[in-house]
Design a protein around this nucleic acid. Structure first.
Length: 583
RNA sequence: GCGGCUGUAGCUCAGCGGAUUAGAGCAUCGGUCUACGGAACCGAGGGUCGGGGGUUCGAAUCCCUCCAGCCGCACCA
């Protein structure tokens, strides 16, 4: 993988880039553009394994090729090199490089993370709750992952357009509106405004299934809605407004950056749907199949091995989500000028998105140079490894989980004898609870299912959000104990103890960790990095007294601590996690 | 049936383009320490990387195949 190929401004060259470019030259001298395969290693600071592949290509023994590369390699000022085993290049950084790189980091608020030299417009489609329906754990994943990606993109300098594709249209609205009328507007609004969406939805659903007259009214109401009947639209808007207000509360509670401006629901695309059909038809892509208007992208088959359609317009002339998604993709490319579109949606919809891109490309709406990706994710499971359900079998409310996490975090703070005021303590508990939930979600590989276990995520030890927050808080407390405010003077990094050196190595590695996470859309890579850094810090902190050391050594260690604190804080913030000063 | 995802220590997970003795965390056991925040640190035991084949000097990683679990496969999104 070409990790570091994004066009970036050279603010500060990361240690990895420094090594990589020197190695590249040496490899080029043997075979142009051979990949050095430079990685962190436990045998040395970095290891280049590219010689092995190169040897095969050139048809010479690996050791011999390694000698060639080393002879051409000019890194004496950066690292020592030795050939190990069959032909690995082990590279150990010189203290001189550590020193210059760490000094640069100390003066760099971005800690070596460069801004893009060619900012893109990135549309990120995430969260997507449904009107008059409770937000559940499925929305948690989309919301948390999408928000982390949005934050990373913004930090890099890309222009992020968040799109909350709210489910605000379709046949269910017939019954929802009729139910609203049955309840009376005031009563309905009251129910919805306290966030009791499930009761409302279920009420509608039950009547719809049990009561034929109601069902009939509902159907007529759908027709009225789609026909643009004013009164019906007014009622529809009540439902939407109430729900959207409720969603905003959830986002606020989660500390997610979505705003009301990002709410662009399905209904937004309504008047573009006819054009979608017209254009597809004009391009000869539409086939009438059983009365439904379909596009058959090549390569997709159903269970009987027949071509699988994307149904653009149903037999009853209504539009489904395929049409809406096509209109949306078109709007995002030609209207919003997206260079990149990310759909943060569960993995069950993988085929839908494959077909969507295929059809959009066939229609010429999605140029090759627009990156379009389904950022898919697995399910949240209950303790029994089955789909997460409440005791009564219903879906689990997202807010309920959050509230419970906050309560538990708060109880833990009280148990530790927190001296904060009630308000401050609750605020802190909220930060901890968010960290616990978000970090758990972000720290496993997206595609996997994970088990929702509050005890585990809220644990202050282990690979958890609170542990990282704690490491950061300990660091900050060091500086609170200083007599005078800390000024990052001219520390010299001698790194005489191995723990100092290991910590420093971790500090230098932020850029490559971020780049991998960012480019592969895998926030868990950043999580892994941060946890590793926190461990390096605590190991260092046990072995190396900071405040009780003196002179240059003290200055050096304080500087390492300061960098570590900032790295943790920045890294967590890119994931959407706060780093409190005290806990 | 076709397609997708997943299968790594008792549990929860990493393992990045193949590379040297497969790593964490939790739990267990044993240590450190009159704690710069012990919500810490150090160490140990524990794995034939779902099974089988193949490619290779070398495979958890690539290819094939089988097994198990979950999900998708025409008018709901």
């Amino acid at each position: 993988m070409k990790w570091l190929k994004s066009g970036r401004l050279d603010v500060m060259t990361s240690t990895y880039d420094l090594l990589a470019s020197r190695l590249q030259k040496a490899f080029d001298s043997v075979v142009p553009s051979a990949d050095p395969v430079l990685r962190p290693s436990d045998r040395s600071d970095y290891q280049a394994n590219g010689v092995m592949a190169l040897a095969k290509q050139v048809g010479k023994p690996p050791r011999e090729v390694a000698e060639l590369v080393v002879a051409a390699l000019d890194v004496a000022d950066i690292a020592t090199v030795e050939i190990a085993g069959p032909g690995f290049l082990n590279l150990n950084l010189t203290t001189q490089v550590f020193n210059t790189q760490l000094r640069e980091l100390s003066n760099d608020p971005r800690l070596g993370l460069e801004k893009s030299s060619a900012p893109k417009t990135v549309v990120i489609d995430y969260s997507a709750p449904n009107v008059a329906k409770e937000m559940h754990v499925g929305h948690l994943r989309s919301t948390v992952i999408g928000d982390a990606l949005a934050r990373m993109n913004r930090f890099v300098g890309n222009s992020v357009i968040a799109r909350n594709h709210i489910g605000d249209w379709g046949t269910p609205f017939g019954m929802l509106i009729e139910h609203l009328l049955d309840l009376g507007e005031d009563q309905a609004v009251a129910e919805l405004s306290i966030g009791d969406l499930d009761t409302f939805y279920k009420g509608a659903r039950e009547k719809f299934e049990a009561d034929d007259a109601f069902k009939q009214r509902s159907r007529l109401r759908v027709v009225a809605l789609q026909g643009g009947d004013k009164e019906t639209l007014r009622l529809w808007k009540i439902l939407v407004d109430q729900s959207v207000a409720y969603f905003a509360e959830v986002y606020q509670k989660l500390d997610v950056t979505l705003t009301p401006d990002d709410n662009v629901g399905e209904s937004f695309y309504n008047d573009m749907l006819d054009d979608v059909v017209k254009d597809l038809s004009a391009k000869g892509l539409i086939t009438d199949s059983d009365g439904a208007l379909c596009v058959f992208p090549p390569g997709f088959v159903n269970r009987d091995d027949e071509p699988l359609p994307m149904i653009v317009q149903k037999r009853d002339e209504g539009f489904g989500y395929a049409a809406t998604d096509l209109a949306a993709i078109r709007n995002r490319v030609s209207g919003l000028k997206a260079d990149e579109i990310l759909y943060v949606v569960g993995t069950p919809q993988a085929q839908h998105f494959d077909m969507l891109y295929a059809v959009a490309r066939m229609a010429g709406w999605l140029p090759e140079n627009v990156r379009c990706e389904h950022v898919s994710f697995g399910h949240v499971l209950g303790p029994d490894r089955k789909m997460f359900k409440s005791r009564s079998g219903g879906t689990v409310k997202l807010v309920g989980l959050l509230d419970e996490a906050i309560e538990r975090a708060d109880a833990a703070l009280v148990a530790r004898g927190s001296e904060l005021s009630d308000a401050d303590r609750t605020a802190l508990a909220t930060d901890i609870a968010r960290a616990a939930i978000k970090y758990t979600d972000l720290s496993t590989e997206r595609q996997r299912d994970y088990i929702f276990d509050l005890d585990r995520m809220l644990a202050f030890e282990g690979d958890t959000g609170p542990y990282l927050q704690y490491a950061h808080a300990r660091l900050r407390s060091i500086f609170r104990r200083l007599d005078a405010p800390y000024v990052p003077g001219e520390a010299t990094f001698a790194l005489e103890s191995p723990q100092e050196r290991q910590l420093a190595l971790g500090l230098l590695a932020l850029p490559e960790a971020f780049d991998v996470a960012f480019q592969t859309l895998q926030p868990h890579k950043l999580c892994t990095y941060l946890f590793d850094l926190a461990q390096r810090f605590t190991t260092f902190y046990e072995a190396c007294p900071v405040l009780s050391s003196e002179g240059a050594l003290r200055a050096e260690r304080l500087a390492l601590c300061e960098l570590t604190a900032r790295t943790l804080e920045l890294g967590l913030s890119l994931l959407g996690i706060a780093a409190p000063q005290q806990m």
